[in-house]
Amino acid sequence: MSEQLTFTYTIDGDDFTRAGEASSSVKNKLKMLGVSSDAIRKVAIAMYEGEINMVIHAEGGTISVSVSDDAVTMVLADRGPGIPDIDKAMQEGYSTAREDVRSLGFGAGMGLPNMKRFTDEMQIDTVIGEGTTITMKVYL
């Protein structure tokens, strides 16, 4: 691959049952591009957690995924409420998710920590009341 490829997705914030479709699509595309299964797994887990977060907390958003020779870069941007305390949000087990979200198997305070765990770089830019952009990189 000499050029950078970019895929962009709009995430619907209303439909929990469809959350994960974008991550699934990226997983398939990376497989077709011949990316290693280790890297695909990391991207899939991190992006899926991010996608779920967008649906739970931010009523959706956009995800763009760029693939270059040396990394897969994911940029997840939403216009949700923002993250008031990033240090707290990064602690395993800390969650502000509603009880109904927990009954769906998420909201255990593992989302952001998982995103960090499975990526090589992660940056959170958040403004209260305006939204959050998370940039994650998995090296190839």
């Binding site: 929990f16 994960g20 991550s23 797994r41 887990i45 899926y48 198997g105 998420f106 920590p113």
Partner: peptide
Amino acid sequence: SDVLAYCGKCSVLITGLCNPQVVRTAEM
């Protein structure tokens, strides 16, 4: 989220949760 964090090399998932995200998680 625990499955995503800790599943490691496991290839079978036992769960009592029943919604489409179980299948999505398994797929990832």
